[in-house]
Nucleic acid binder design. Structure first.
Lengths: 245, 245
DNA sequence: TCTTTTTTGTGTAAAAAATACACAACTTTG
DNA sequence: CAAAGTTGTGTATTTTTTACACAAAAAAGA
């Protein structure tokens, strides 16, 4: 039905020189910005850095960079993540593009927002240039550019995604207790959950491995530790019933 | 906490001239492409047009256009929709950006895909230039650029969205029978549904208005006609329980 | 006008999932 | 050894989902 070089009568105005066409297109500067979330002290945090624009002196911004020539957007986002945190084997997903003409004081810059989740303790921020650090979402009220809007939207996106996919485990240590897991869900979703029902739900999914270890150094009765069974999950993604709190 | 012109000691390397900075950024041509879905003959269709590139002679492509200087992405997508279909008061939502470096034969062009739903019979395609027309999704196997991938992704996106939001009504006439509504869901989701349970579900939402009219000119017992109660839905969006088939 | 075809409209019983809720045992701390 | 804080566990109730069948209406065609 849609075959190349078909035998239909040729259109009059077919464009022969695609390169010339594209060269005539208006061009815009393009960046990626990463909302990198972590979890610590029972709070969801996001990795931000002081803006290096005088215009936004003192304001925090997301980690971002320009998209290089011939670089894919995903590539650019992974590059930012790698350069800034040293991690490269993590979850990273495009959220959406932000294009308000005056979102950047230097002129029009379109940005594509990415969301990523990582375990704060799996890497130390060795470089604290420009005050690079984790901040709880609630403490970030003003940000450079439209980054507050981006953070908010990525947060909403995360709240939704975490109920449909097992993303939360990227934010926890490899071994975690059920309390830690519940705290994570409660913090991200902003609700409080019934402990017995929460445990029942995860038990019914049968995706947690009881590793027969106990929590250490907690100031109360220690709980059992579990790992998430990524392998089993990958094998039959159908088994994730979704968390519907 | 993040205040403009704060009194902290100034950083050494703050960038004063944001404009100059942005001018030095690499720039890329940017387009929007709209996957405009309609529903007809019990099939989900998408509005496509023959490519005007010789390179893609005979291939269909989505409706798209370059993003103009200082134009927001949403604006550009609405403009395409308006120019091509005459409609402007419709649902339109960003899906995601596509950035493969060789997705366009004329060089690197990044595109942002939008998804829109409209009722095929609410407007005639007066201009059929370049074979502009509705095609069922299944019939579109090869397309120009990466537009097949875009259509597929927009379709998945739609399948998901229609279960969480009352989008389907944009694809139907204002007055519709429950059978038409069910056909729509079955066609989009690619499943077959139990009629009694389907009706029960919509009845329990209490968002359909029985307008006391019957179908006309159907070759069988006519069914009752309903309207969707947009007003009530807007008032308390909570009432949409989601369609979980 | 009668028969056939197609579709409408409706309810119930069973199974599955979600919810609400309490207490004894364990560990640490002081 | 008492107090504080947390773990681990089960059941009854309600809600939601699922599976399923038949009579009545209208149109089409004989």
């Amino acid at each position: 039905m849609t075959k190349k070089n078909s035998h239909e009568k040729p259109h009059e105005h077919l464009i022969k020189d695609a390169k010339k066409l594209v060269q005539a297109y208006p061009k815009v500067p393009l960046t990626v910005d990463c909302a990198i979330f972590g979890f610590e002290e029972n709070k969801l945090k996001v990795l931000v850095i002081k803006s290096d624009l005088e215009y936004y002196q003192g304001y925090y911004s997301l980690l971002g960079d320009i998209v290089k020539d011939n670089e894919e957007l995903d590539q650019a986002a992974y590059r930012v993540l790698k350069e800034r945190t040293g991690m490269n084997d993590v979850f990273l997903d495009q959220v959406r593009a932000f294009s308000h003409p005056s979102r950047h004081p230097g002129g029009r810059v379109i940005t594509v927002a990415y969301c990523s989740l990582l375990n704060i303790n799996h890497h130390e921020l060795k470089i604290h240039d420009n005050d690079l650090n984790w901040h709880s979402i609630s403490s970030l009220t003003n940000m450079a550019f439209d980054h507050k809007e981006i953070v908010d939207e990525c947060y909403s996106w995360l709240q939704k995604m975490i109920q449909e996919h097992p993303l939360g485990f990227n934010l926890l240590p490899e071994k975690f207790s059920l309390r830690e897991l519940q705290n994570l869900y409660e913090a991200i979703l902003g609700v409080s959950l019934d402990r017995r029902n929460f445990r029942k739900k995860f038990a019914s999914m049968d995706l947690l491995i009881d590793i027969n270890e106990m929590e250490q150094d907690v100031p109360h009765r220690p709980g059992k530790l579990y790992k998430f069974n990524f392998e089993k999950y990958e094998k039959n993604k159908r088994k994730w019933i979704g968390i519907d709190f």
